[in-house]
Design a protein around this nucleic acid. Sequence first.
DNA 1: TTGCTCCTCACGTCACGTGAGGTGGC
DNA 2: TTGCTCCTCACGTCACGTGAGGTGGC
Lengths: 201, 201
Amino acid sequence: MSRQFDHQPHRLPLAGEAMAPALPGVRDSSRGDVGRVPDLGPDDSDEDLLQVGDLARASGKTVRAIHLYEELGLLRPHARSKGRYRLFSQDAVVRVRWIGKLQDLGLSLPSIQSVLREWEMSPSAPGAMAKMREVYRQKLASTREQIRRLAALETELSESLKYLETCDSCSPVRLIEACSCCDLHEDNQVPPELVAGFHIT
Amino acid sequence: MSRQFDHQPHRLPLAGEAMAPALPGVRDSSRGDVGRVPDLGPDDSDEDLLQVGDLARASGKTVRAIHLYEELGLLRPHARSKGRYRLFSQDAVVRVRWIGKLQDLGLSLPSIQSVLREWEMSPSAPGAMAKMREVYRQKLASTREQIRRLAALETELSESLKYLETCDSCSPVRLIEACSCCDLHEDNQVPPELVAGFHIT
DNA sequence: TTGCTCCTCACGTCACGTGAGGTGGC
DNA sequence: TTGCTCCTCACGTCACGTGAGGTGGC
């Protein structure tokens, strides 16, 4: 089922490895730790590269979604294998999870795109942080509002379920039309909106 | 701005009113209370009909959305005016709000469609109620889960904002690249994921 | 060769948004 | 006539889902 991290990390030969060994900074090792190429220079990021499938499992997103994020410039594979397989660094997991969280906060992918561009364009570190803070401050407010809405819905659901409990004592041969003149509910209680919505039109 | 209920309810001449007065149950009155047609039979629902715009405002949905719901069979106008304007009964407001709540609970319109069909097809009142309860029971669980997720995100946002407060004391000429070796945060605190996500790739 | 994973199009889906071009009704 | 609201197509958008047809690598 899960072949996530319970095996050797992927080590595919990189694009241009044999054909253009002069190209620096683009290396890794081949699968199963056999055929590792000799080091060609100082490089600290040639370990533990992930294929899209691995990244998908590690981040809880689909391969298609990750392709889309890359298309939108939210993500870049660290390298490509000879067979054009995308190879991601571990950082990519953080990035994809980060995208998911911003989505949960209500940002669209185009919004995330522009937030990220602004960040990358920013000439000043604390300036970039200030913009980030503004976004997060607003999202904290809207998230709290969203929680309030869901909590209200939760209450409505509970009350509707309580109301519907009474229906257990109704006769199975009763037709739905009879509900409008039902007197089983205590104090002729008016049905909650989640129940009333069915009956209408 | 809001012309919702601060004026006379709409009273448009109904379709077929002059041409086919024999058609019963399809009536209302003309706008501004002038030109009201005489009653043509027993009918208790010819008052306070709403145009789509009114329904949209009253339910917080767009006209386009209401058209879509009608297309999907989730809603039917009580009647049409001579000019083919849709005329909705007050019940429609409850129905549209109900749709919105089920959407908030995570149901798609096709799902709502089938829930509604099942309900309308059900031969037994308590049987229909039992099915409704099953849906609501599951949705109560998923809503609680969703609230938990959002609450966790809320905590993360708060912590990220707190972390970012420290950046106020950073020099404005600092570049973002310097963040990776920043030592301003207490105990060399590791940045929260919502902050780390920016830095990556 | 088999089995698995990946590749690049490219069309489908869901819940609408957004005009285009026209009519209704005071 | 003006101003507002409505009508019916019909194409656009957003975040993917879902094949189609092909290749990579043990």
